[in-house]
């Protein structure tokens, strides 16, 4: 399965959905015909066919949506560097070989030792109200 690609729908399910769509459209037309000829509204037919149309359209969209991720995506990871003496702090992208408490040179402000204070990734989540 290709990551990031569009999912291919199974032929059988596609056929079932298309048959359902055609039948519900036919049912809707029948309801319309009945209304035009006999001036009666077949509520049951209308409700069933409209919901079947909605369901088949939804299923078709679902089948074409992007597949869920496998978890191998490259994440944006940040490295925070701090001076042990003053309050100097800088943030850069994570580089291979970084680890927390690694000494990475001297402070441009006070010439104190700079060390990696933390390494983290940021995740954006929707605020929950409950």
């Amino acid at each position: 399965m290709e990551e990031g690609g569009v999912r291919r729908a199974p032929i059988f399910f596609m056929a079932v959905i298309i048959v359902m769509l055609v039948m519900s459209l036919a049912a809707l037309i029948l309801a319309l015909v009945a209304y035009l000829t006999q001036n009666t509204i077949e509520y049951m037919n209308v409700i069933l066919s409209v919901s079947a149309i909605a369901l088949s359209v939804y299923l078709l969209i679902q089948m074409r949506r992007k597949p869920p991720s496998l978890g191998f995506e490259t994440l944006k990871v940040s490295t925070v560097i701090k001076c042990v003496k003053c309050n100097y702090e800088s943030v850069r992208e994570f580089e291979r070989g970084d680890y927390v408490l690694k000494e990475v040179g001297s402070c441009p402000k006070c010439s104190g030792t700079l060390h990696i204070y933390s390494i983290f990734r940021e995740v954006k989540e929707r605020e929950k109200t409950y």
Binding site: G71, L75, V77, S118, I119, F120, R121, E122, V123
Partner: peptide, 8 residues
Amino acid sequence: STMRKEIV
């Protein structure tokens, strides 16, 4: 997985 900011 890589440590989240909230955990730090």
